[in-house]
Nucleic acid binder design. Structure first.
Lengths: 342, 342
DNA sequence: TTGTATGCGTTATCAG
DNA sequence: CTGATAACGCATACAA
C-alpha cells in the first residue's frame, strides 16, 4: 500500500519548513512570495493532497457532513440527498450517507459511528418521532451541529426544515370536498412520524370545517410504502358504503391505491378519486395521472444544508424552524363523485 | 466543542495501560479476563467509541468505502447504492457517496479527495468510457482496491460488475422482430458509455441476424434521461415512414418516448411499440405499462461490494469480470405492428 | 500477559 | 515572516 505524499516531502522539495507549507495551504500566515511559489510548485508537481485524517484528528473536525435517511430506495429521498450534496459540495463539504430503514436502533448505531469521524455536522431524517438517540438535544449536546429534515423528533428545539404538511393536506382535502366528495377516506402513513400525523391533522381540519363526519374505519394507518397502501386500500374498497375519494399520505401509498382499484375492477376517477402527497415524478405517468400535494425534496435538502452550514460557520445562533410551501397539483385521478358510486 | 472519550480515559478508569485497552478492543493480544472485563465495563459506562480518524491515520486505512455515481436522482442508482450499503454495513464498512453528474472532471476531484480519507476501497460507476482519472489502472496503482460497476472504462483490467447489456438488447430486439416489426428504431443513450454501446450492439446483432436493414436515421443518440428521449422520439415520430417500434436504451428514455407518442396524438402500442431497459419500478404503472429488459440494480451493487470486500481482505488476487443476467419483461407497450401503421 | 514508547500527517504555538 | 516542536488518539513493536 503505497503511502501518499506528505507535507514533509513538499517541505523538502520546496526547501522550506513543514510549518511554512501548512501556512501557505491554509493561508494562516503571510508567506514571502518566493517561498509560497516554491511550495505551490512542489504541491502541483507531486500531486499532493492533505490527509483529511490527520487534519481532522488535529482540528477535531472534518469536512464531512453526516446524513441519516430512512431509505435511499424510496424515490422521495434521492432528491433531498441531492439538494444536500449540491449545497455541501459547493462549500467544500462531503456527504456521508446512511440508511436507517426507519429503525431507531440502526439510527443510533450510525450516528454514534458517524461521530467518531468528527463530521462538521449532521443532517437527519429521523426514523421515529421519539427516538432513543434523539429524545433530547443529543447531537447538539456534544457540540455537533445538527439539522432535522422532513420530520421533527419530539422535543427537538434545534434547526429543522419541514414541508407544510398540515396545510398541504388541508388544501388537498378541501379540494376533494369542494368537488362534491363526502365519503372521504385517508391512508395516514406511520402515526409516529410527524409528517404523517400533520397530514392527518390537515385532513381532519378540512372535513370538520366542512361539517363532514366520517367513520373511523375510513382512516387507515399504513407505512409509507406501496405494499401497505395496497392492502389498506383493498380494505377500504370492500367497505359499504365505499368511500368516493381516498387521500393517501404519500405517492407510494397512492400507487398502492391505484393498484387496488385496478384489481377490484373499479375505475379511477370514475368510481373513486385518488390524491397523493409529495408529487413524485412518476405521478405524471401513472394511469390515471396522479393528483398530489407537491413538495420539493430538493429544496428541503438544500435548505437544510444551508442552515447546517450557517450553524457550522457560526453565523447564526438562534434555532430556526423552516416550513417549506406545498402546492396542489390536480391531474386525472380526481373527479367529482359519480351519482352511481357506492 | 466537547471532546469525546479517549482510550486514555478508558485506561485510567480500568486501571490498565492504554496498550491493553487497544488489545482488548482489537483482539490483538490475549488479555487476562479480569482486566478485559474492567476495560469492557469502562468502555460501556463511558460510551466510548474509538476515533476513526486516529485509527485511520495510524493504520493508513479506514472502514469507509468511497462510492462514485453519476446521479442519485436517476432512479436506477439508488438500488445500486442500497445493494452496496447493505453488504458494506454487514461487514462494518460505511459508504461515502459522491455524484459526478457524468462529469469526469468532477469525478477526478471526488476520487482525489476521497483518497485523502484513506477509504478501504472504491466503487465507481464511471462518468465516461475514457476518463482522465481512470484511463489506466489509476486507483489500483496507488494500492487502492477498486471495483467498477454498470459501465467499464476503457482499458480497465481490474474487477468489474456489469449487466448483460448486449445480450439483453439482443433478446429485446429479437422479440420485437418476431412480433413482426421491421421498421425498428433505437435511442442509444450516450455512445461513450459502454453499457449504451453494448445495448446498441445487441440491437444491431438482432436486426442483422434477421436480415433487417434500417436507415441510419432510425438510430438516434440520446443521453440517459427523459428529456433527450422525448426530443429524439419526436424526431423519429415525424419520419416517413415512421418506425413501428422504438427500443429505448433505458426506461427514462422510454418515458420520454411515451410522452412524445402521447403528444403526437398516437397510441402505444397500437401505432407504435416501445421497449425500455432497466425495468424500473414505475414501468408497471405507466400508461401503457412499459416492456423492458430487467436488470437488478440491487444485485449489481451488492455483487460489486462483495468483490470489493474480498479484494480488501485479500482473499483473491486475479481480477474478475462479473456479468449479471437480464430478463425480458413484456407488458402492454409492445404489440405486433398494425397493418395501418406508417 | 501487560506496559512503554514511537510515529501516523497535520495544525498551532512559540521562538527567533 | 519562518522554523522547531508539541499535541491530536490510536496501533504496534518491543521490553519487561
Amino acid at each position: 500500500m503505497a503511502r501518499a505524499t506528505t507535507m514533509k516531502q513538499i517541505a523538502e522539495r520546496a526547501q522550506v519548513s513543514i510549518g511554512t507549507v501548512s501556512h501557505v495551504i491554509n493561508g494562516t500566515a503571510s508567506v514571502r512570495d518566493k517561498l509560497r511559489r516554491r511550495v505551490l510548485d512542489a504541491i502541483a508537481s507531486l500531486g499532493y493532497q492533505p490527509s483529511q485524517l490527520a487534519r481532522g484528528l488535529r482540528r477535531n473536525s472534518t469536512n464531512m457532513l453526516g446524513m441519516v435517511i430512512p431509505d435511499i430506495t424510496n424515490p422521495f429521498f434521492p432528491r433531498v440527498v441531492r439538494g444536500v450534496e449540491d449545497v455541501a459540495f459547493e462549500a467544500s463539504y462531503r456527504v456521508v450517507l446512511c440508511n436507517t430503514d426507519n429503525d431507531s436502533v440502526k439510527e443510533k448505531a450510525y450516528v454514534d459511528e458517524l461521530r467518531s469521524y468528527r463530521p462538521a455536522g449532521l443532517l437527519v431524517i429521523p426514523a421515529a418521532q421519539r427516538s432513543l438517540s434523539f429524545n433530547s438535544e443529543y447531537p447538539m449536546a456534544a457540540g455537533l451541529p445538527a439539522v432535522y429534515l422532513d420530520r421533527r423528533p419530539a422535543g427537538w428545539r434545534g434547526d429543522a426544515v419541514v414541508a407544510a404538511n398540515e396545510e398541504g393536506a388541508f388544501q388537498a382535502t378541501s379540494y376533494l370536498v369542494k368537488a362534491g366528495h363526502t365519503r372521504l377516506a385517508m391512508l395516514t402513513g406511520p402515526s409516529h412520524l410527524t409528517n404523517a400525523s400533520e397530514r392527518l391533522a390537515g385532513f381532519r381540519r378540512a372535513i370538520s370545517q366542512h361539517k363532514i363526519r366520517i367513520g373511523q374505519e375510513y382512516v387507515q394507518e399504513t407505512r409509507f410504502d406501496r405494499e401497505t397502501g395496497y392492502r389498506a386500500s383493498m380494505r377500504l374498497l370492500r367497505m359499504l358504503p365505499r368511500p368516493t375519494a381516498i387521500f393517501a399520505s404519500n405517492d407510494m401509498v397512492a400507487l398502492g391505491t391505484l393498484l387496488a382499484i385496478r384489481e377490484m375492477g373499479l375505475k379511477c376517477p370514475r368510481d373513486i378519486s385518488v390524491m397523493g402527497f409529495d408529487d413524485l415524478e412518476f405521478g405524471m405517468f401513472t394511469d390515471p395521472a396522479l393528483s398530489s400535494v407537491h413538495q420539493s425534496g430538493y429544496q428541503l435538502g438544500a435548505t437544510a444544508a444551508r442552515l447546517l452550514l450557517e450553524r457550522i460557520l457560526g453565523t447564526r445562533l438562534s434555532s430556526r424552524q423552516v416550513v417549506l410551501p406545498t402546492e396542489l397539483r390536480i391531474r386525472n385521478s380526481v373527479a367529482p363523485p359519480s351519482a352511481l358510486a357506492g
